[in-house]
């Protein structure tokens, strides 16, 4: 265990623990955009900037990203200095210029006093802040169907060569974990479309309601050893089946 200071409060932590985790445990709020507990931090969005110094730094301080900065003994962390607030504001100014379509960014920007953003470079509908949550989630936890493609201003998240992916299993984890809802998908009846590919949702073997794409069931089956068909019963029918099983058990 080590001791450090966050906003004037002495706190304990494990050496190397990330500042964001410590701050959250202590109830200190730090805004984040690219942070997701399920994947390693990447330091992509810069919203979590805090100012750190040490007693032996003779007054010098530096800005670091709290999400991936490791704690060390006697570190002094300040989360709301003028420098921090100004930096976050500038980051939001750039983000809002890139993503005029994102409500979340607009709201955060307003919180930092940016009521009338002056700069717009992105398309008006653009929402993606390139935080990489979706790509980290897909690559580390699912099948690795999407990544960042192209460079510079052309950079975007997509399938390789923006072609229809045969690796994607249609689980929607990318879309659902996106902080700005930038990933579009559509689900109508037994069809789900994402990244340009339409998946057939297998109808429940008992009532016909949509369950999940066959591709996701196969992927799950490989990981868990359950039979693919076992996934093709909807929740309602599974619960009803459980009730019937109970009924048949002699008490």
């Amino acid at each position: 265990m080590i001791e450090l200071t966050i906003d004037g409060k002495r706190v304990q932590a494990r050496k190397g623990e990330h500042l964001l985790a410590i701050a959250r445990r202590e109830g200190v709020e730090i805004p984040t955009l690219c942070h997701h507990e399920a994947v390693e931090p990447s330091g992509a969005c810069r919203m979590c900037m805090v100012e750190v110094t040490r007693p032996d730094w003779e007054g010098w301080s530096k800005l670091v990203t709290a999400c991936n900065f490791p704690a060390e003994e006697d570190l002094i962390v300040r989360t709301r200095t003028d420098k921090v607030m100004q930096t976050r504001k500038e980051i939001l100014e750039l983000l809002i210029a890139r993503t005029p379509g994102s409500q979340l960014i607009a709201e955060m920007a307003r919180e930092y006093g940016l009521d009338h953003p002056t700069l717009t470079v992105g398309e008006l509908s653009e929402k993606c802040i390139l935080c990489d949550i979706c790509t980290r989630v897909c690559q580390n936890l699912v099948t690795g169907a999407i990544s960042r493609i192209n460079r510079g201003v052309e950079k975007e998240v997509n399938t390789p060569f923006a072609e229809v992916s045969d690796v994607c299993i249609g689980c929607l984890a990318c879309a659902k974990s996106c902080p700005t809802d930038a990933i579009e998908f559509k689900q109508v009846g037994l069809e789900r479309t994402i990244w340009g590919r339409t998946f057939d949702l297998v109808p429940c073997t008992q009532c016909g309601a949509p369950t999940l794409p066959k591709e996701q069931a196969e992927w799950l089956s490989e990981r868990t050893g359950m039979k693919v068909e076992e996934y093709f019963v909807c929740v309602k029918c599974k619960a009803a089946q459980t009730a019937r099983t109970y009924e048949n058990i002699a008490w």
Partner: peptide, 21 residues
């Protein structure tokens, strides 16, 4: 643990008893 969940709903498909909703 909501902070870790990616809402893939794999658990919903996996629970044989319909207890993950």
């Amino acid at each position: 643990l909501e902070e870790r969940c990616i809402r893939c709903h794999s658990c919903v498909a996996a629970c044989p008893f319909g207890n993950m909703r």
